[in-house]
């Protein structure tokens, strides 16, 4: 899988690149409008991460060019601008998704995976990880072929973990992803702990070897044994 990361802030660029490489993607970078333009029209990418504010031109302009060439379907906009207008304009230009800075790398990771999966030709919306099988359309979880009933939030949590397999998910990232953007974090930690506990119990009872581990008291990691 080849990903083009267009971001002018080099420190952020390297962070994102490192994170994506941990997922074994091939990541190329561009840090200004012209470099991005050049790469975009020479190579094909499975996913493009695009910052809106670039030296030398607007990311939205790049998106227009891509759209004109029918290549805008796998773009995720990364922007510090989260006004509704920009979001709508970006999506209208064919971008697939939109994340606002600052974001958790787990969140970006999940979005990239979602885009990649959506653009797969065979198109069945599912995640398979070891003995776990998750049908995202019908919201069903099978553990070793047996259905395990999850409530809505538990399903969302597990999906997020599966999209970030073997990666650290901080509690904040999890809370933001599952319970919405403007969550008041500190009030929620014992609740998150309770939810994870329930989810672990259900997985264990179904005999799953995949495990959700606590990491340094700051988050969790789904580990596939």
């Amino acid at each position: 899988m080849k990903i083009l990361l267009i971001e002018d802030e080099l420190a952020l660029q390297s962070t994102i690149k490192e994170s994506l490489e941990m997922e074994h993607y091939l990541v190329e970078t561009a840090s200004d409008f012209n470099a991005a333009m050049e790469k975009l029209f020479i190579y094909d990418y499975d996913c493009i991460l695009l910052d809106i504010m670039l030296p030398g031109g607007s990311g939205l302009h790049l998106l227009e060019e891509l759209k004109a060439h029918g290549k805008s379907g796998n773009v995720i906009i990364i922007s510090a601008k989260d006004s509704l207008d920009d979001k709508l304009e970006g999506l209208a230009l064919g971008a697939d998704d939109y994340v606002t800075k600052p974001f958790h790398i787990a969140e970006l990771n999940a979005r990239v995976k979602a885009v990649l999966r959506r653009n797969r030709p065979e198109g069945k919306n599912e995640i398979v990880a070891g003995e776990l099988y998750m049908d995202l359309d019908q919201r069903i979880l099978l553990v070793s072929g047996q259905t395990v009933a999850l409530n809505r939030k538990e399903f969302d949590i597990l999906r997020y973990f599966l999209l970030n397999k073997n990666r650290l998910i901080t509690r904040t990232a999890l809370a933001e992803h599952v319970w919405g953007d403007n969550i008041d974090q500190s009030d929620n930690f014992d609740f998150i702990y309770y939810q994870i506990k329930n989810l672990r119990k259900k997985l264990q009872e179904a005999g799953a070897v995949t495990e959700i581990k606590a990491v340094y008291g700051i988050g969790y990691k789904l580990v596939e044994l």
């Binding site: 802030e9 420190a11 952020l12 962070t15 994102i16 490192e18 994170s19 800075k101 600052p102 974001f103 958790h104 790398i105 787990a106 650290l168 901080t170």
Partner: peptide
Amino acid sequence: AIISGKIEL
């Protein structure tokens, strides 16, 4: 975003 990302990594 950079601070959080770097620490998370």
